[in-house]
């Protein structure tokens, strides 16, 4: 069974994100970049399925500039078999990403697509769902456990107030939640081997997909700085403040 895993290159989760001086965009010029953490979990899950004998080939896909090759190499070093970069300098919206992934699915014919549930930059949480919609496939989002059979999968989802266990038929799209697994440390021999694994680069235009933006960004603002705390005299004052000022109780 072939698995496609889309991976996105985002600002590293440990970097404190800043806006550019003119407020036009997030300043990513010199920030450390890494694989989106949810996508890392997706790659890890695919590798575990392969190691368990439930999956065959793993194809990692990224969409973006040539710089995205580093996250694809990271996926290959973790254990993906080959990689595809759809090259574009444009920043795409989730629908455009989903449309492109639909084309990738048409070419690769996987039985399963495992996506991160969202990327830590856009936080849209849409591409996986849209891809399932475009393909007419079942979707199992926010997976915290995945059992794969030959014709279907059982997925435990994290929902408000508990867990939901659902069964989906294959082919399907699964999106990963944080607790699905802990991605492994890549070994040095695998980093070396990753250099020799195939990484294809295809220009975005070759897919003939309309990826023009449908949204307009009106403005960006940094969160308000946290103001200094105050010291309360006693529990009664604390309760009063929580009740009357913060209005949380």
């Amino acid at each position: 069974m072939k698995i496609v895993v889309p991976v996105k290159r985002v600002i590293d989760a440990n970097v404190k994100v800043r806006l550019k001086a003119d407020g036009s965009a997030v300043d990513s010029d010199n920030a450390k970049m890494s694989m989106n953490p949810f996508d890392e979990i997706a790659v890890e899950e695919a590798i575990r399925l392969k190691e368990a004998g439930a999956a065959g080939e793993i194809v990692a896909v990224s969409i973006g500039s040539d710089a995205c090759q580093d996250v694809l190499r990271a996926a290959l070093a973790m254990g993906a078999d080959r990689a595809l970069l759809i090259r574009t300098e444009a920043v795409l919206e989730p629908l455009a990403v989903a449309k492109l992934l639909r084309e990738v699915v048409a070419r690769e014919q996987p039985r399963l697509v495992i996506c991160g549930k969202q990327s830590t930059d856009g936080d849209a949480n849409q591409a996986g769902q849209m891809l399932a919609g475009l393909l007419g496939w079942p979707q199992a989002t926010f997976a915290s456990k995945l059992d794969l059979g030959t014709d279907g999968a059982t997925v435990t989802r994290e929902i408000d107030g508990g867990l939901e266990i659902i069964a989906v038929t294959l082919p399907a799209v699964v999106t990963t939640d944080l607790r699905l697994n802990s991605p492994r440390y890549t070994t040095l021999p695998n980093i070396m081997k990753a250099k020799k694994k195939p990484l294809d680069v295809v220009a975005l235009d070759e897919f003939g997909v309309d990826t023009r933006p449908r949204l307009t960004t009106l403005g960006l603002a940094e969160p308000a700085a946290r103001s200094a705390g105050v010291r309360v005299a006693d529990v009664a004052e604390l309760l009063a403040k929580l009740k009357n000022e913060a209005k949380v109780i």
């Binding site: 580093d70 190499r73 990271a74 070093a77 440390y185 890549t186 040095l188 980093i191 070396m192 990753a194």
Partner: peptide, 22 residues
Amino acid sequence: EEAGAELAEAVLEEAGRFAGEV
């Protein structure tokens, strides 16, 4: 010949992660 900038970065990134976390 393989020991170029790209490999160096991949090796250092992963070693750095292992050193910092483990």
